[in-house]
Amino acid sequence: MSCPDCFKGSTHEGQPRGKVIELHGLQTYVSEPSNDKSVRGIIVIIPDAFGWEFVNNRILADHYADKGGFRVYLPEFMGGHAAPVWMMDTFKAISTGGILSKLYNAPSAIYGMVPFVYYNRPGRSYPVVKSFFHALRKAEGADLPVGAAGFCWGGKHTVLLAADEELVDGKRLLDAGFTGHPSMLSVPADVEAMTLPVSFALAENDMAVSIQQAEQIKQIVEGKPEAQRGEAVMYKGCGHGFCIRADATKDDVAKQAAEAEDQCIRWFNKHFGLS
């Protein structure tokens, strides 16, 4: 279900400025534009394995709110079973250490990974995600455009939402989607099934999506009818998780993570009719 790279990366410094509310039955981090501008649309972040409390995900929500003028929701879709943040150190030790380090850290990796994998498999988690979007579209999203931004684990759910043709008061669950380095995709089937426009930010060195699969994704989404047409952008030299867990000390990777943020904002501006 998840590759080892799903649990690697860096924690970012910063203090999230949003607040936590209960929304449609889920604890939700919410961030609004800090410049007092009126909200122009809604973005729901469907996070990576580290979930809604992970500081990187909350900081990203703040960035989207300020850059795009959006209300950004980051719900607790995982029911308390997000991967623990200490797993990043564990997997780093496994990947960089010798045989003794691997043997020593392997039990901890399994201990942290198995509950996440078991409780958050798409067959179990997608109904939770869909239910939230259904309620959101009926309430806050009745008069505002709605987008889903999914990363790693969340990317699969964004793609599933883009293929889900259920209507709420005559509208789809969302207007458009964005995904950074998605995992668990069935390529080409999941991508071919999408009937809403989705923008992909793909990493060149990604265990979850190979170069060949990335090329397939690009060909499929850019070949769809205009109303469904997506895009796929390849970020050279980046690995899985770069949108969320990039090492801020590495200029090239940090720069490309910021470019992926801008890609997301441009995409929603376009499909929310704001550009």
Results as ranks from 00 to 15, higher is better:
Pro75Val: 03
Cys3Arg: 13
Ala163Leu: 05
Arg17Asp: 02
Gly180Phe: 13
Pro84Cys: 11
Ile99Arg: 15
Val146Ile: 14
Ala142Glu: 15
Ala227Arg: 07
Ala82Gln: 14
Phe7Asp: 00
Gly180Ile: 06
Thr195Glu: 10
Arg121Gly: 00
Tyr64Cys: 09
Lys171Phe: 03
Arg17Asn: 07
Met207Tyr: 01
Thr90Ala: 15
Ala248Trp: 04
Val168Pro: 01
Gly239Ala: 10
Glu32Lys: 13
Asp247Val: 02
Tyr118Asn: 06
Gln212Asp: 15
Gln256Arg: 15
Met207Asp: 14
Pro4Met: 12
Ala193Val: 01
Ile110Tyr: 05
Thr195Phe: 07
Cys243Gln: 11
Arg137His: 07
Leu144Phe: 05
Asp36Met: 06
His81Asp: 12
Leu167Met: 15
Val187Gln: 09
Asp190Thr: 01
Thr195Ile: 09
Lys171Thr: 01
Ile46Tyr: 11
Lys255Val: 04
Phe70Gln: 10
Asp252Phe: 11
Gly18Ala: 08
Ile94Ser: 05
Asp251Cys: 02
Ala83Asp: 05
Phe133Arg: 12
Lys255Ile: 02
Met207Pro: 00
Asp175Met: 10
Cys6Lys: 01
Gly80Lys: 12
Gly97Phe: 05
Val39Pro: 05
Trp267Ala: 11
Ala106Lys: 09
Met113Pro: 00
Met194Ser: 09
Arg58Ser: 09
Met207Thr: 03
His24Val: 01
His181Tyr: 13
Asp143Met: 07
Phe132His: 10
Gly147Trp: 02
Tyr119Gln: 11
Gly112Thr: 03
Ala49Glu: 01
Asp48Tyr: 01
Arg245Met: 03
Ala135Asn: 14
Gly98Tyr: 05
Cys3Gln: 14
Ala142Lys: 15
Phe70Asn: 10
Gly112Arg: 06
Gly141Ala: 09
Lys250Arg: 12
